[in-house]
Amino acid sequence: MRARRVWAVVPAAGRGERFGGGRPKQYETLAGRAVIEWSVSALLACRDVVGVMVALAGDDRDWSTLAIASDHRVHTCRGGKHRSDSVLAGLEALHELNADDTDPVLVHDAARPAVTAAAIEALIRGADGPSGGLLALPVADTLKRGEAGESVATAERSGLWAAQTPQMFPLGTLREALREGRAQGVAVTDEAQAMERRGYRPRLVAGEAGNIKLTRRGDRVLLEAILHSRTRGQTE
């Protein structure tokens, strides 16, 4: 029997316009390391992960300066204009590395640096099936529908979950789902949506409150506090 292999794709070709600043947010420094280094390192800390494919912009000049770029388990390919294009490019590149269509693939945001190896391993255990799954948290806050800066309605939050990454699906199935979405001109916001469109029901695996995405400047303070606390814990 072939040994279990789990791969990962990290789409990192985006510019992060909402974040602002003079460089892509995945290369901002948090707690002494680039955001993307934290994200990729968490994936590599999982014993089942045999390789990570990072999809980069064609004009990327920052990746090669990072220490993690020289890790033999990390590979790169050219990403696309949209997230789904970069993920699809990463899947195609993994296939060229002899990844099998049945191998599970974790797709993780480059700008979600505080995910833990424990959460990733829980996802690997809990979503190992044809429909795959994703880390997510039940929505706790009251949801408001806004118009022109004013609250006009309260949305029912029962049954709603906030999606996180990683999300994990069989390589071949996810590749076909993304191909179909692109052919139909559908801009999926995450991999689970692509799978849902084909009738799959991805499993929701409990995530962690600290697994937030660096989207706006205000997120930096919280993420730095989380990452600094982990660094201190490792050195004490």
Rank of each mutant, 00 (worst) to 15 (best):
S41P: 15
T65Y: 13
D48M: 03
P24C: 14
A34H: 10
G32F: 13
A42T: 11
G20V: 09
D59T: 13
I36Y: 08
W38P: 03
V40R: 08
A42P: 13
G58A: 13
V54D: 09
T65P: 02
A31P: 00
I36T: 05
R18A: 15
T29L: 07
F19P: 00
D60L: 12
S64T: 12
A57K: 01
W63S: 02
K25T: 11
E37P: 01
E17T: 05
E17H: 15
A55R: 02
S64Q: 06
E28N: 05
V50D: 12
S39A: 06
E17I: 13
S41Y: 01
V40L: 03
D59S: 09
T29E: 15
S41C: 14
D48N: 05
L30S: 01
D62E: 08
Y27W: 07
D59Y: 01
L56S: 05
K25Y: 11
I36V: 05
D60G: 08
V35C: 01
L43V: 14
S39K: 02
E17Q: 10
S64A: 11
E17K: 12
A55I: 06
A45Y: 02
A55F: 12
D60E: 04
V40D: 01
G21Q: 14
G21Y: 06
D60F: 03
A31Q: 14
G22P: 03
M53W: 03
D48T: 06
K25H: 04
A55P: 00
S39E: 00
G21S: 10
A42L: 14
G20E: 02
D62F: 06
E37I: 04
Y27L: 05
D48I: 03
M53I: 06
L44V: 10
A57D: 09
S39C: 03
A34D: 02
Y27A: 00
K25L: 05
A55G: 15
A31I: 00
W63L: 02
Q26L: 15
E28R: 01
F19L: 10
S39T: 13
R61K: 15
A31W: 01
I36N: 11
V40N: 01
S39V: 06
C46V: 12
A31L: 12
G32C: 08
R33Y: 05
R33N: 12
G51F: 06
A34M: 07
A55S: 12
W63D: 00
G20A: 14
A45Q: 11
Q26N: 15
A45V: 12
C46K: 15
L30D: 00
L44S: 02
G51T: 10
P24R: 03
A45M: 04
T29D: 07
C46G: 12
E17C: 05
V40K: 00
D48S: 15
R33I: 07
V54L: 09
T65S: 08
Q26W: 11
K25A: 08
V50K: 05
R23T: 10
V49N: 03
T29G: 08
S39G: 06
E37M: 13
P24N: 08
P24D: 09
M53D: 06
V50I: 07
E28Q: 03
